[in-house]
Design a binder for these strands. Structure first.
Length: 271
DNA sequence: AAGTGGACCTGCTAGC
DNA sequence: TGCTAGCAGGTCCACT
């Protein structure tokens, strides 16, 4: 579910409220993708620091170490003043003096993992392979072009890999390629420098616009206040197979790449 | 080394 | 109305 915009919108919606709060209890539900990696009780009495984002991961700083959180495909975080009885899909509660941060994740591909720091232990292992942040000044056409040159997969598959640039998942990779006018099937090493330039810009603007709009609300994504996002109403290709392209009137197609659905307009997106 | 496919798990929807 | 197949925003890991 959550790609960079959804994770960032979630982060912004609770980081100020949880910062400085003392942890009073931790509740762990059904197993997530990885175990917590520490005794839940060892987190109690620590104080929450900054909540930062790296790719689609959130890092929640504690006095000693921190928690690396991922929302997987179906996860969401809610921060509320009260601690309601957990539902069947509520698998992690961080109860603090300011409120309770709760992870709800039906499919349980998400995770909450303790790590001694963001750049050691499990966090280092998971974050270490990630590519540049899309809003990092170093992420530009030159960087993207050079990175794509080193791969021979379809450009869309290369974007989803997350080792070149993070944050663009299936929705935003499709949308960015549409914005850049690039056919998702083009081999990454055949993307010219000017097209890489346009693609880098498209990735940045697409993700930035989605953050502004509060993310996409497919199924039931909500930020930690429970607010829905509005981006999906603006999707030009994602989820629109068979519909008319708003730009050229052609028909949006759906294909499968690397086991994932890809949506594109053959009229607007060139080889 | 890089590319591919399977694995993880549950819920919803379309179609019969 | 009820059942089933297919699909879903991610990403790690094993295998070729």
């Amino acid at each position: 579910m959550p790609e960079l915009p959804e994770v960032e919108v979630t982060r912004q919606s609770f980081s100020d409220r949880i910062r400085g709060a003392r942890v009073t209890a931790v509740r762990v539900g059904k197993p997530l993708r990885w175990g917590l990696g520490c005794e839940p009780a060892s987190i109690v009495a620590q104080t929450v620091g900054d909540v930062t984002r790296r790719g689609k991961y959130l890092w929640l700083e504690l006095d000693r170490g921190g928690l690396l959180m991922h929302l997987g495909m179906s996860g969401s975080l809610a921060f509320s003043a009260t601690t309601d009885a957990p539902g069947p899909h509520d698998h992690f509660d961080l109860v603090t003096a300011n409120g309770t941060l709760r992870l709800t994740d039906p499919r349980r591909f998400g995770a909450v993992v303790w790590s001694p720091s963001a750049d050691s232990g499990v966090a280092a292992k998971l974050l270490g392979r990630l590519g540049l942040e899309p809003f990092d000044a170093r992420f530009d056409g030159a960087h993207l072009h050079a990175a794509l040159k080193r791969r021979r997969v379809a450009v869309k598959t290369a974007l989803l890999g997350g080792d070149i640039v993070v944050g663009a998942g299936n929705i935003y990779a499709c949308e960015a390629l549409f914005e850049a006018g690039i056919d998702p099937r083009v081999r990454s090493d055949r993307i010219s420098r000017p097209r890489a330039e346009r693609l880098a810009v498209a990735i940045r603007t697409t993700l930035a616009r989605a953050v502004q709009l509060g993310g996409s609300t497919l199924r039931n994504f909500r930020d930690s206040h429970g607010a829905a996002g509005a981006f999906q109403a603006q999707a030009r290709v994602y989820g629109r197979a068979g519909a008319a392209c708003a730009r050229c009137g052609g028909t949006i197609r759906r294909i499968v790449q690397g086991g994932r659905a890809t949506f594109f307009c053959a009229g607007c997106q060139k080889r």
